[in-house]
Design a protein around this nucleic acid. Structure first.
Lengths: 200, 200
DNA sequence: AGCAAGTGTCAAGTCGCTTGACAAGAGGTA
DNA sequence: TACCTCTTGTCAAGCGACTTGACACTTGCT
């Protein structure tokens, strides 16, 4: 077996915690998510919640990171479904942007009002977005290298380009200024220009 | 929550053990089911298998009892789907008999050759069938009392009649002499006669 | 006889969940 | 302001469940 029964159960608990938290958010917002209520909803003690996600802020982080994982699943999938770099990235960006519109967690984070209890959430996509950018960039970079080994970029250049794409997507999610399709087109266009420039 | 996270995981382990055992049986028969292989298949240590089901014979019992549970689910369901006692019982018997033909566990037990390693299994439906008869009778009796409170039987009489039905079904599964439909009809016919007799 | 494989059992250890408790902060109320 | 309640974060003790490693025993094979 790839994973032991133990670790599997462990992951199960984490998933349930995050599922329950999502449901509580859905019902009455992030500020209503109490560690006590959460524990009751999952069916474990409050302490177990704390050891699992740490503080309430850790819960918010965990929620965001799991959501990020889902985004990256879509990204990987869409990248592989195209045969051209630019089209791959365009499709992946579009997928991420559309998910950003429909994801409860993302909407909760983005629409949270600072200077309230919800502040915890907002900081995740701003001050603490480092891990998100880093993880997303890693995934995107690895996928691209695997799918398109002959890109006209050095390793360092690719890292820069990928991080730029990730940051653009993240920005378009948090502060949307145009429909997802157009935002994706814009990002793809930039990438295309960069590629053309690198090849010449 | 009705059940704690802990007990739920516990039941999950048991289910996985029995699932894995069933799959091993399916692949190469009961005699190939090794505690070591079973542990590996589930993803736990061999000791955990032992603490969960005891001896190898305990594993066989557990398999049989879980299968019994599935039979009883069908029985309850079919009993409730009819409006006449006799029809309820006929349908329930038919369901059990048909399941007996298609159930891998039951076929493995019934077709096991005595005086071999498989003997463990066979004894379950013969010498150790007490618990099975008892449990099945209990379920059938309770369902009937709930569905048909006005049966012309005393409590003791009902117990006798129910146990007879159960034993007949069990016998028809282990030593079939006619198609399920006819066997079910026969049992229903006997019950009908008994009811008519009790009413007169 | 010797060996390999499987069973059943034990003790010690680790890990995760529970329980009960406490200090500290935020919000509401007399 | 003082008081009360709710919530958070943390701790220690305890327990249950899985792991690891070991041992004696049986069975089948060579």
């Amino acid at each position: 077996m790839t994973v032991s029964f133990r670790t599997e159960v462990q992951g199960m608990l984490r998933d349930r915690v995050l599922d329950a938290a999502t449901q509580l958010i859905e019902e009455s917002g992030w500020s209503s998510v109490t560690m006590t209520k959460l524990a009751a909803a999952v069916g474990v003690s409050r302490q177990t919640i704390h050891t699992e996600v740490g503080t309430r802020h850790g819960l918010a982080q965990a929620l965001a990171l799991r959501e990020l994982g889902r985004f990256l699943d879509v990204v990987r999938e869409r990248l592989a479904a195209e045969t051209d770099v630019v089209e791959s990235v365009r499709s992946a960006c579009l997928g991420a942007l559309e998910m950003g519109e429909s994801s409860l967690v993302v909407r909760t984070i983005v629409t949270s009002v600072p200077s309230e209890q919800d502040a915890d959430l907002l900081t995740i996509l701003t001050t603490e977005s480092g891990e998100i950018v880093e993880t997303a960039s890693l995934v995107l970079r690895e996928s691209l290298v695997e799918l398109y080994p002959d890109l006209p970029f050095t390793e360092a250049e690719l890292a820069v380009a990928v991080e730029a794409v990730v940051r653009l997507v993240l920005s378009a999610i948090t502060r949307p200024s145009k429909p997802p399709a157009q935002a994706a087109d814009d990002i793809a266009w930039i990438l295309e220009l960069a590629l053309r420039g690198a090849r010449s």
